[in-house]
Amino acid sequence: MENQDKVKQMNGSGVKPGLAAEPTMRAQGKSEKVRDVAPADHRTPKAKSRGVNVYYGAKQALFSIDLDIFENEVTALIGPSGCGKSTFLRCLNRMNDVIDICRVEGKIEIDGDDIYSSGLDVVQLRERVGMVFQKPNPFPKSIYDNIAYGPRIHGLAEGKADMDEIVETSLTKAGLWNEVKERLHDPGTGLSGGQQQRLCIARAISVSPEVILMDEPCSALDPIATAHIEDLMFELKENYTIVIVTHSMQQAARVSQRTGFFHLGELVEVGKTEQIFQNPVDQRTQDYITGRFG
């Protein structure tokens, strides 16, 4: 069911017809431009993708994506619905594996390890690359067990005291500790939406990942809860590398240091956030951020 929805989304039905051209041609013509945009960065990327193509059955969803993600930064992926930004995000922790008809080509490396090589265990990858979803999805267990689940299955805690500490640190980092410390054994589903999402962030950081992927983490939240999460991202980026997919350009501008603009399965443009928003190179980026479409 989920897969089909995804595929439908990938078909890009929501895009204005004027922009629908033969995508492959453009992908080839454009990949040079992407390199033009951010030539100045000489740091080693935390994660890098080269020539990533994703297919859902016969439909191609992503066209030769080259993208670098740098450590201790927030990288925002923006673009209209169905442009492939979530698909790309899910490639980074191989969540696309569970979709039978999904096929990934190309190379994605995290710290130099090819995450699609046969020698890499997907369970260990997901320990390194955490994920927060669009809709808060705490397990229907207690708040404590929600956080303790990851460390438990990965064997990260030695005994109860250790686990208590992990739970407290994770909740503190997610800015939730003071609100829930009195009721750690109440169900996590009893929290408010914003609290639930912070619980999910705490759950994601409980296994000390290196990269945190956030798939539109604020789209189900009210502005106050959103502000809370955005502050949190600001703090978290000191220790983690964050990739966020968002529909809100304001949010991308507020929280991210680098922004990539996706359109119809291509990475149109990527660069420093200020540059993308103030001085985009590509006409389509210009159109999108000025609200001409999408």
């Binding site: 069911m1 989920e2 922790n93 969540m95 569970v98 369970v123 260990q124 990858l125 997901r126 320990e127 955490g130 994920m131 979803f133 809709k135 999805n137 705490p138 397990f139 229907p140 689940y149 990851g150 299955i153 990965h154 999910c200 759950r203 994601a204 296994v207």
Partner: peptide
């Protein structure tokens, strides 16, 4: 059972059996 529960658990690194 909502798929979001399965996805959440998978993203935490749980094996399909877990």
């Amino acid at each position: 059972v909502p798929p979001s529960i399965r996805q959440g658990a998978l993203a935490m690194g749980a094996s399909p059996m877990q």
